[in-house]
C-alpha cells in the first residue's frame, strides 16, 4: 500500500540493477541513501517540488524524497538545510525567497550559505483586476486610482513576500498611494471577486479559471518577457518602464557540497526538467520550466540578490 514509497523503491531497485555495471561504479559513493528535498512553501510551489522530486527519483539510483519544512517565509527550511552536512543528501527547493527573507532580517545567513545545483524554472507575478471595473489596461487603472481620491488596495501574498516586492516596484513607478493587503495562499482571487481589494498581484495559476470565465482580467505581467500563454503585455510595455521582476525556482545544497555530487544532482535535475511529463504537468500548474546549469544559476542568484536588496532598501523593507 505504500504508494509513493513502494513505487520509488521498485523504481530505485530496477534502476539500481540496470545501472550497477556502468554508472553506479563511476558514482560509487553517491547516492547510497535517499536524498531529502526540503520544500519551503505550500500551494503550487509544493506541488511542483513534488513533481520534480518524483521525476528526479526516476533517473536516480536512490529516491529523492520531498519533505515539507514550511514557515517563516522559508526561513525555517533554509535554516534546517544550512545546518545539515554538506554531503548532497539534503537539498532545498529554493527561490528568490532566500534574498527576501534575508533582507527582511529573519535569516542569519544569505544565499552564499548554499551551493547552486540548477535553476528549474521561472514564475512571473501578474497584475489582475475585476473585469467589471472597466479598466482595460494598466494606464486606465492608474488614472482611475488617481481620480478616486483614496488609496488603491492591492492584495499580495504577505508583507515582504515576493509578490509584495513586485507590486511595490510596480506602483512605485506611478507614485500611487497604495495599501498592501496581505493574504495567505490562494485567497486573493476571492477577495478580488468580492471587490474588497482593487488589484491582486499573484501567480498566474491562481487566476486561471476566473480569466477564462471573464470575471477577472490580467493587466500585465512583471517579467521582461511576455507570458507564453494568453495575450498579456509586460508591465514594461504597459507603461511601467524598466520593470523586470521574475521569480526563479531551483535547487541548492549547503555550501561545501563536493563538486562531483553537485554535478550528479545537476544531471538529475536536467533530465527531470527536460522530460516531457514534467513540462506537461508544469504548464497545468502555471510554472515555466527553464533549466539553467549550476554556474549560470549561481550568477543569477548573486545578481538578483543585489537587485532585491536594493529594491527592498528603496521600498523601506530592508531590515539589514
Amino acid at each position: 500500500m505504500t504508494f509513493c514509497n513502494l513505487k520509488s523503491l521498485v523504481l530505485a531497485n530496477t534502476m539500481g540493477v540496470l545501472l550497477v555495471p556502468g554508472m553506479a561504479l563511476a558514482q560509487a559513493d553517491f547516492p547510497t541513501k535517499p536524498i531529502e528535498m526540503t520544500i519551503l512553501f505550500g500551494g503550487s510551489a509544493q506541488t511542483v517540488g513534488q513533481v520534480l522530486s518524483d521525476e528526479m527519483s526516476r533517473a536516480s539510483a536512490q529516491p529523492i524524497v520531498a519533505v515539507s519544512r514550511p514557515g517563516g517565509g522559508g526561513a525555517v527550511g533554509y535554516s534546517y538545510a544550512q545546518a545539515t552536512a554538506a554531503d548532497g543528501y539534503n537539498i532545498v527547493w529554493n527561490s528568490n525567497s532566500i534574498s527576501t527573507v534575508y533582507y527582511q532580517g529573519n535569516l542569519p545567513f544569505n544565499y552564499e550559505a548554499f551551493t547552486p545545483i540548477a535553476q528549474i524554472g521561472v514564475e512571473v507575478p501578474v497584475v489582475a483586476v475585476q473585469s467589471s471595473r472597466g479598466w482595460d489596461n494598466l494606464e486606465e487603472m492608474v488614472a482611475a486610482a488617481r481620480e478616486q481620491g483614496q488609496p488603491l488596495r492591492v492584495g499580495v501574498s504577505g508583507l515582504g513576500s515576493f509578490t509584495h516586492i513586485a507590486s511595490a516596484a510596480l506602483f512605485d513607478k506611478f507614485d500611487l498611494d497604495v495599501i498592501y493587503v496581505p493574504y495567505g495562499e490562494g485567497r486573493a482571487p476571492a477577495e478580488l471577486l468580492s471587490g474588497r481589494i482593487d488589484v491582486a498581484v499573484q501567480w498566474q495559476s491562481q487566476f486561471q479559471s476566473h480569466l477564462r470565465s471573464g470575471d477577472l482580467l490580467l493587466l500585465c505581467s512583471t517579467g521582461a518577457q511576455p507570458l507564453e500563454h494568453g495575450d498579456v503585455p509586460t508591465c514594461h510595455d504597459a507603461g511601467a518602464e524598466g520593470l523586470d521582476i521574475t521569480m526563479w525556482r531551483g535547487l541548492v545544497a549547503p555550501e561545501g557540497t563536493p563538486p562531483e555530487v553537485v554535478s550528479y544532482l545537476e544531471d538529475l535535475a536536467r533530465t527531470a526538467t527536460e522530460s516531457g511529463s514534467f513540462a506537461d504537468i508544469a504548464v497545468n500548474l502555471g510554472f515555466t520550466p527553464a533549466f539553467l546549469p549550476a554556474d549560470e544559476f549561481g550568477e543569477l542568484i548573486a545578481t538578483d540578490d543585489a537587485i532585491i536588496g536594493q529594491l527592498m532598501t528603496d521600498l523601506g523593507l530592508n531590515n539589514r
Binding site: G43, S44, S209, H210
Partner: peptide
C-alpha cells in the same frame, strides 16, 4: 465553484486536479 481552497487539505486536492489539467471554477 471558485477554485479557491478553504484549507490546506483542499489546496492539495486542488493541486492534484490542476496537475491533470482540471481547472475548478464556474466553467468546469
Amino acid at each position: 465553484g471558485l477554485g479557491i481552497p478553504g484549507d490546506p487539505a483542499t489546496a492539495l486536492i486542488l493541486g492534484g486536479l490542476l496537475i491533470h489539467g482540471i481547472q475548478p471554477g464556474a466553467l468546469l
